[in-house]
Design a protein around this nucleic acid. Structure first.
Lengths: 244, 244
DNA sequence: TTGTAAGCGTTATCAT
DNA sequence: ATGATAACGCTTACAA
């Protein structure tokens, strides 16, 4: 693997000059640029990322922690991140949290250790405290899909309460009086916040919400299907044809 | 960010000693180990991965290039890689090829530049020559789902021809005489190899294979569904009830 | 067992 | 415009 030194020798200039043309410094002689460039080609030179990171105190990677790469939800998330990362010539360092606190913690540490200054973290298993501590340690860390008041400016999340409230109110405004709610049985804020939004909307409109109107199911297509079947077969709800 | 130097000062030893306990070198004094460890805790020291990589000439990352992270197929692939990577305390550096030759090339270069010595590459768009060149440059590069004779020991791939041959022969052995083939319209080896295997099996068993028996469809659930509909509605094939 | 010091490949400061 | 050179944080002979 050719180093900057090799290129300098091959091009007959100093390494400082080589560094200048690599980094497109304005103070590089036209002649030098030329010879350095051909030298780089000849030796198929690649700047050493580690050395660069060491001196510049920042890698060109963006760390992303998700719960499970094989879940299409996270796949899409990663892909979106990658698309903007690519525009800035950065790679992604991926960590898997496996929906487990220990694994999440370990992954975040690994990601921080590896020198990424930008971290996009999707963590549901870790406690607020730990995440706050990490956020304090890493100024470029951002939480996605999670809201922690103490570090709100680092959080990007849905307003689940409001979303569920709006959806419920939308149905109410369309004349519905019996609205059921199928929720995920995941014990995370998303689930409880949405449920709360649903209940609040019903309450604000003086609609009843007997327990039989809501149930919790496995978070999957199949879970939702079974939930619907349960609601319909129990006679709690019934189809209403035409429009909303 | 505390450095090894800070730890050394705090622990009252030399940086060499600190380095030794970090790397669990056998020649580290019991007392030193103790004081260094508490010093590390106090300063919440994290070894600088770049510096380490620079001197040891190898990062602790495994690079993976896939066509599209948001595709569950690749998601599972990445997850599997991650699981063994995690056992070795390594992260994944992910590249997206986007089914495009330029993007694939660019990604591989980025991954190599970033210092990963282990590369798992899934490339369908790049030509053999380019991949061979990359393989030569990076001794730790491995091709997945692709077979290139010149670097066969670096390839991990299905024998698509044989697989299709076996599947076809299986049907033949079960008494079938009219066997259709719905293929992907992706212009990649996988598709043509499988098709060839299918044809060879028919030929070896002296079965007819009129053009109407095979067609190419979009690579998706819907594509396959439409393919079946076409075959059935054209009367090329028909259902046969019971067993194989 | 421990410390000193050279060196890894770059960048950036300072002269020239 | 160009070249020495220190520095980045760490590992590893080599000495002691």
């Amino acid at each position: 693997m050719a180093t900057i030194k090799d290129v300098a020798r091959e091009a007959g200039v100093s390494i400082a000059t080589v560094s200048r043309v690599i980094n497109k410094s304005p103070k590089a002689g036209k002649a030098s640029i030329k010879s350095v460039q051909t030298a780089m080609k000849n030796l198929s030179y690649r700047p050493n990322a580690s050395a660069r990171a060491l001196v510049s105190k920042s890698t060109n990677t963006i760390a992303v922690l998700v719960s499970d790469v094989s879940d299409p939800f996270f796949g899409s998330l990663i892909k979106s991140v990658d698309q903007v990362a690519r525009e800035h010539n950065k790679h992604l360092l991926i960590g898997n949290g496996y929906h487990d606190a220990d694994a999440e913690r370990e992954s975040i540490e690994l990601l921080i250790n590896s020198g990424s200054k930008s971290l996009i973290i999707h963590s549901k298993a870790l406690a607020d405290d730990e995440l706050i501590a990490f956020a304090k340690e890493a100024p470029g860390l951002v939480l996605i899909n999670r809201y922690i008041p103490e570090i709100s400016e680092r959080c990007i999340a849905f307003d689940n309460f409001k979303g569920a409230y709006m959806a419920t109110e939308f149905l109410i405004n369309n004349g519905h009086k019996h609205i059921a709610y199928i929720n995920s049985n995941h014990n995370i804020d998303d689930a409880s916040d949405r449920k709360a939004g649903y209940l609040k909307a019903l309450q604000d409109h003086q609609l009843a919400h007997p327990p039989s109107y809501s149930l919790e199911v496995e978070l999957s297509d199949e879970g939702g299907r079974l939930g619907m079947i349960e609601l319909l077969s129990k006679g709690v709800l019934y189809y209403r044809s035409g429009g909303l």
